[in-house]
Amino acid sequence: MEGILTLHDFMLYTKSVTYILVVVALLGLAGFFWFLNERDEDDQDEPGIEH
């Protein structure tokens, strides 16, 4: 952060971090959704329905 003097450099840094977080978020959400619904016995086929 010390050496960031322009808005462009700031955005380059923050957006790069953000994109990494986006990937983590997408994978995390998918996994968590599965974790949430896996045990619902009446929804056995939940995270991957067939259609």
């Binding site: 997408l26 995270p47 991957g48 067939e50 259609h51």
Partner: peptide, 14 residues
């Protein structure tokens, strides 16, 4: 692939 269809669809929308 069919088992992953919901995941793929949501990814597709995002």
């Amino acid at each position: 692939v069919v088992k992953l269809m919901l995941l793929l669809t949501i990814f597709g929308v995002v």
